[in-house]
């Protein structure tokens, strides 16, 4: 199981933390899972961070990693 933090507009849909009860090996597999489970979110605009660093599809995910969904940022 992994815990995924959500922020901004994604948090309003998923809540602040999402529990994923499925084996995830990399960012790509998580992205595909989210696309299937929550089709109303435009996932192409949402970045995924692993341990507070922007991550890409091939990057691995391990249990205990801090995963976060980053919709388009709008600070300032």
């Amino acid at each position: 199981m992994i815990v995924v933090k959500a922020f901004g507009q994604v948090k309003e849909v998923l809540g602040s933390e999402l529990l994923v009860n499925k084996e995830m090996t990399d960012v790509k597999s998580l992205r595909e899972y989210l696309r299937n489970e929550y089709p109303t979110i435009v996932w192409s605009t949402v970045a995924i961070a692993v341990n507070t660093q922007y991550a890409h599809d091939p990057d691995p995910i391990s249990s205990g990693d801090e995963i976060a969904l980053i919709p388009p940022v709008s600070g300032g």
């Binding site: 605009t45 919709p71 940022v73």
Partner: peptide, 27 residues
């Protein structure tokens, strides 16, 4: 500093109008 902050720093702004609100997605 301010230009790069707006591009990559994970902070989100919600605008409230008199009768609605929305998350800003483009800066």
């Amino acid at each position: 500093l301010i230009d790069e902050l707006k591009k990559t720093v994970p902070i989100w702004k919600k605008e409230f109008f008199t009768d609605s609100s929305h998350w800003v997605s483009q800066t």
